[in-house]
Design a protein around this nucleic acid. Sequence first.
DNA 1: CCAAAAGTGTTGGGTTTACACCCATGT
DNA 2: ACATGGGTGTAAACCCAACACTTTTGG
Lengths: 236, 236
Amino acid sequence: MRCATHPGVVASGDEPTTLRVLLWRRALDPHIGRWSLPGGRLRPDEDVEHSIRRQLAEKVDVKTLAHVEQLGVFSAPARVPGPRVVATAFLGLIPSDVDPVVPEDTSWHDVGDLPRTAFDHQEIVLHARDRLRAKLSYTNVGFALAPAEFTVSALRQLYSAALGYRVAATNLQRVLTRRGALVPTGRTASPGRSGGRPAALYRFAHRDMRVTDPFAVFRPPAPAAGRGSRTRGGTA
Amino acid sequence: MRCATHPGVVASGDEPTTLRVLLWRRALDPHIGRWSLPGGRLRPDEDVEHSIRRQLAEKVDVKTLAHVEQLGVFSAPARVPGPRVVATAFLGLIPSDVDPVVPEDTSWHDVGDLPRTAFDHQEIVLHARDRLRAKLSYTNVGFALAPAEFTVSALRQLYSAALGYRVAATNLQRVLTRRGALVPTGRTASPGRSGGRPAALYRFAHRDMRVTDPFAVFRPPAPAAGRGSRTRGGTA
DNA sequence: CCAAAAGTGTTGGGTTTACACCCATGT
DNA sequence: ACATGGGTGTAAACCCAACACTTTTGG
């Protein structure tokens, strides 16, 4: 029994309006020719997160992961032909302006229109997508999809791509600002050829994931202020 | 290298006002005498959830798990002395009125006042507690802590125990009712010796976990009604 | 009739969406 | 000037906590 693989979902909100995932065309026997998530075996001297980061760096040259998060274990005895392989799945995000040089046999695929995948990798990708969508709502994960500096319109496109529906720039601005996730840099972008008011440039206040909307509904007495002491443990 | 263990956090909201976890006093060499989570090795023909259910049934006679959920993988190379062991941690819940017969060398411990634990099991328990607290807010997991039928006061005690602070019966009632999680059975409980209005008995509408408060903040256009189409994928 | 426990009405604060309106720039 | 984006103001909807008040029982 192989001990563990780590399929990593490396996703990037792409300019057009889609969320994309990096897949690898299998050259080896089980499910040859199908698309699979990058990953590999866990070494005895590393933990699973270290392992997935190493796999992505070594095999597909992805070294700029802005955020990495564990999704869960996939362990159905028949998920892979032959001896059972336990996989720990991850979600990895890279900013939209990063375009790593990936090997010949890999390419980016629209998460909403996946090709035939190997093993249970489609299930894993969809799981990752749902996790990302959820966290966009109550955390600042957006920072992992956006460039260091961006306009609200650009951010709106990224959120729309990841969520799968159109979000309004107005509200995106206000919600993220009130939560203290968005900070104006003072600079502005120059308008396009067609004119229009120059857009202010923003950045995320933090570059590590935090819960920005703790939504505990049965909340403690609440001594403090603001949307206040709504307290909730992060969900993972 | 052992391939995987599955520490299962079996928790129960207890009458007094505490959240408790079932721990096992180790009789074997590494960390002998310390308290550890029940669990064991994964068999080649079962998935991790099947495994943890089997372990709990076989070793501590816990067969009445109302809810089981994966927490994540713990894989630090030194988390256990000797060859590395990868563990998949679980949260399991049993209703407050169930009191399984457990072996001599196990007992229930207040999660807020844990004894010295083996390995990283304290971290796992606290992780489980946080997950439970989070899900009490936006799902109907309460069903897994409560008996089949209960009064709002009793439910209030369970929520207070699990959350670690006092929740008001009034709002608990209203929130769960609005969300469609709570249903009156029509029956009532007789008041105690000191009098008082007889309490109505309720039950949870569903006995499987569902997201009752999808809190997507950038939500889709919203064609429908109610707190409406706030849509979010479950986080797990 | 009084105390005790349960349940309902009402108010107020906070958050978010929707939409109208003003601002700045290129042609 | 006008079209084109960008940004702010404001109103309506919704949800939740707190608290007062009513209902139903035992002593």
